[in-house]
């Protein structure tokens, strides 16, 4: 019998589920190897009860309902994989971290908006609530990393995720350095690789969507931005777009 897996979306744009459906060349191999029994984004008939070998979960946890959902997913799954930067770090919707949510809502929708009654708290990564066995960051995650992860997990292995910054892959592709040679605000040196330097390869400075590398040297990169007459705070703001909770906690730790 094929192992059963589930694919779930919490608060996010469902981009990872679309990324999975976009694995067109591998879709037949994927469903040949596993039974996708619970996947609201791909099927209207789902089995919400069975035990699962792996659950792939995208999106952040934004309220009590989603917290209950992720705890229930964890309970029925041998392995939980956080897919995409929302699930891994909180993502774009966690950008407001230091501000009070009601104030943010008021600023955006006005004091008489109906939105105040919505049950939406701060957006937090899955790992704030449950044990996450594997994190595949990215906005969206790379389909190649998803397929590699499925294949490794089925072999009883953990896929090796990159721990090095985007620069390594960018140099391997022999791109001109956008930060050094062009003075563009590229977050590559402090951002986790794995995207094969997707944006710099199209002459677009890295926006840090895969989150900071573990030992991101923020003091030095701020200094370098300053030397290049780029606003120093820009690099931190860039990284906060996708991984604010992670950066804020690193700062608290000092």
């Amino acid at each position: 019998m094929k192992p059963k897996i589930g694919i779930f979306g919490l608060s996010g744009c469902w981009g990872e589920q679309i990324a999975i459906l976009n694995c067109e060349d591998q879709l037949l191999d994927i469903i040949g190897a596993v039974d996708i029994v619970d996947f609201l984004g791909g099927s209207s008939v789902n089995d919400a009860e069975s035990r699962l070998l792996v659950s792939f979960v995208e999106g952040s946890v934004a309220n009590a309902r989603e917290e209950a959902k992720i705890r229930q997913i964890r309970e029925r799954s041998d392995l939980v994989v956080a897919c995409g930067s929302c699930a891994c770090f909180g993502g774009v919707s966690a950008m407001d971290a230091p501000f009070e949510r009601p104030k943010v809502i008021e600023t955006v929708y006005g004091s008489n908006g109906p939105i105040k009654s919505w049950d939406i708290g701060p957006h937090r990564p899955l790992s704030d609530f449950v044990k996450v066995d594997l994190a595949i960051p990215g906005c969206p995650m790379e389909t190649t990393e998803f397929v590699r992860a499925v294949s490794a997990l089925l072999n009883g292995d953990m896929p090796l995720m990159p721990t090095y910054p985007v620069c390594l892959e960018c140099k391997m592709k022999e791109n001109e350095c956008l930060l050094v040679q062009r003075g563009l605000p590229c977050a590559g040196p402090v951002t986790m690789a794995g995207c094969d330097a997707r944006c710099p390869s199209h002459n677009i400075a890295c926006i840090g969507c895969r989150g900071p590398v573990e030992e991101a040297n923020m003091a030095s990169i701020e200094q370098i931005f300053g030397d290049k007459e780029l606003p120093k705070e820009q690099i931190k703001l860039k990284l906060r777009v996708f991984a604010a909770p992670v950066l804020d906690r690193t700062e608290e730790r000092g």
């Binding site: 190897a33 294949s151 090095y164 910054p165 140099k171 040297n217 030095s220």
Partner: peptide, 26 residues
């Protein structure tokens, strides 16, 4: 140092490598 590894990537005499295995699906 940013530990970005750019210096090693572009160096004509840096020769360190890593070895990994990739399995096919299924």
């Amino acid at each position: 140092c940013l530990s970005c590894s750019s210096c090693s990537m572009v160096c004509p005499t840096c020769y360190c490598f890593d070895v990994t295995d990739e399995t096919e699906l299924g």
